[in-house]
Design a protein around this nucleic acid. Structure first.
Lengths: 206, 206
DNA sequence: ACCTGAACACCGTTCAAGT
DNA sequence: ACCTGAACACCGTTCAAGT
């Protein structure tokens, strides 16, 4: 069997990090139902009881993974947004970033937005989720700065719902299951275009 | 139908049905991660090995539950659609039916549209899912009958995505967590109104 | 402070044996 | 044909004991 250098230290040192990163990989491999704490411990080369010293429960580890997912989602949206020249382009770009992140980490995405996460109640999780939400608010605000507050709020709902709904249905195989990746991407962009148009129009009648 | 057995019969008689209905209740109570075959068996007053004679695996039972969910979802959408006077009203009504179903059975809805269901591959499941999808197609078709096929397809994506995305985000507590039920319903209806308007506009030329 | 090993009460699934 | 009980290999969580 493979051995660590000369002697395996009794203390891991960075077990918390190791569990998070092992857990993340495991999640994508096996799905939410296939996720187990003992397998995470195994992958971190540690006894099955060790994780308890860093996470109060399996849900605690999942919550930490979800929290980091939100941070990455936010970063992915911001990275795309930076390249956009106009407010409308930014709204689309953020949608692209959102969808690309979801497509790259489908199970993590489902964990973040699934009902299981609802029970976690870790404070950091809610905060991280909020910062991703905030990007939608800012982007819509940029497109229709002069619209009444209520209209803006409705358009945030609308923009987020259509972005989230589309990629969710794709990940679940309900949309575009027979499409090529290229065709599917085009469908997504068409969806985003229709969405932005609606937001722009809701902003005011020139 | 209810016969009072003086002694508990060795054969259950309707175990398959009993497992499905017990499973459905258990699902809503405990969530997807909390769902166990043994608890279903317990609630059906049967040994933990008995379900194996009716379902090849726990996923098989979940797939059956999901399949029936799609049938009910379709029925709920149709029931709402029947009251609609115009094609546009029908599209909205189906959206209302869709959201109401999801709100009434949040965990079942997540099971149906979650990634877990993707692995099931039961033929009946795909068929049931398709019939729900078909209703969206018909409704959009009714609103913009003369539009090019491609536009229609894009608008089906768009309509479904916004309906699905909105209610999904609500169920996950991401939208309207601090709203009253009344206010939340209004947000949903506003979303549907914006959606229909976009579809109508896509159909008729400027 | 951090980790282990044993223990406990659970799982899903299988299968010979009962009805 | 349908169901049971025992068995197996897993779980999450706890805790005294080791380092």
């Amino acid at each position: 069997m493979t051995r660590a250098p000369s002697s395996k230290p009794y203390h891991h040192g960075e077990l918390r990090e190791a569990l998070v990163s092992a857990g993340r990989k495991l999640l994508e491999e096996r799905g939410i139902r296939g996720f187990t704490l003992r397998e995470c411990a195994r992958r971190a080369s540690v006894s099955h009881a060790a994780p308890a010293h860093h996470f109060a429960s399996i849900d605690d580890l999942l919550a930490e993974i979800a929290t980091r997912g939100y941070q990455e989602l936010t970063a992915a949206m911001e990275a795309e947004a930076r390249r956009a020249a106009t407010p409308a382009a930014r709204l689309v770009a953020q949608g692209v970033g959102y969808m690309a992140f979801a497509a790259a980490h489908p199970v993590l995405f489902q964990l973040m937005f699934g009902r299981e996460a609802n029970r976690f109640e870790t404070p950091g999780l809610a905060a991280a989720a909020k910062s991703a939400y905030h990007l939608h608010v800012v982007a819509v605000e940029g497109v229709i700065p002069k619209a009444p507050l209520e209209v803006k709020q409705r358009m945030v709902d609308f923009a987020w719902a259509s972005i989230h709904g589309f990629i969710t249905l794709v990940l679940e195989g309900q949309i575009g299951d027979e499409d090529s990746p290229r065709a599917l991407k085009a469908r997504g962009l068409a969806m985003l275009a229709a969405m932005v148009e609606t937001v722009v129009r809701a902003g005011g009648d020139p």
